[in-house]
Design a protein around this nucleic acid. Structure first.
Lengths: 62, 62
DNA sequence: TTCCATTCGGGTAATTGGGGGA
DNA sequence: GATGTCCCAATTACCCGAATGG
């Protein structure tokens, strides 16, 4: 998966994704020219949202 | 979407949006750096919930 | 081979996160 | 109980020119 795709999915700058790879926060593969490729699974793990309990259930909220 | 955008849209302080995410009142994903991204749909839900005259679920707001 | 879009690298400004207090 | 504003540190976004990939 390309840096631009990951950036678009997480609403960040492609440069930020590159920084994550540089700091080892996300696994990445390097092309012979130095460009990066990211495993789709790792990217999917990042966009896992915390699902809050905010349904019509007042008793649960209190 | 970004915390600042949500804050501007709901006309609250970005810190308040952060607190909502922290208390689980709005779903959010975290970047590896710790910043938050909010699903547009969830923001719209909050926007509807804070609407002065069009609350779909008044009991949900409490 | 040339073509264009994207990514590379570094540097700087703006935003965000967390804690504490009004 | 919830929100807005203060601090500082960290993260992120946009600028440039040059190189890579298909």
């Amino acid at each position: 998966m390309l840096p631009g795709e990951v950036a678009a999915l997480l609403r960040v700058d492609p440069k930020t994704v590159t920084r994550w790879a540089a700091t080892g926060r996300i696994p990445s593969i390097r092309t012979p020219g130095g460009h990066r490729r990211f495993p789709r699974a790792a990217v999917m793990g990042l966009l896992t949202a915390t699902a809050p309990d905010n349904p019509p259930n007042p008793e649960n909220s209190r």
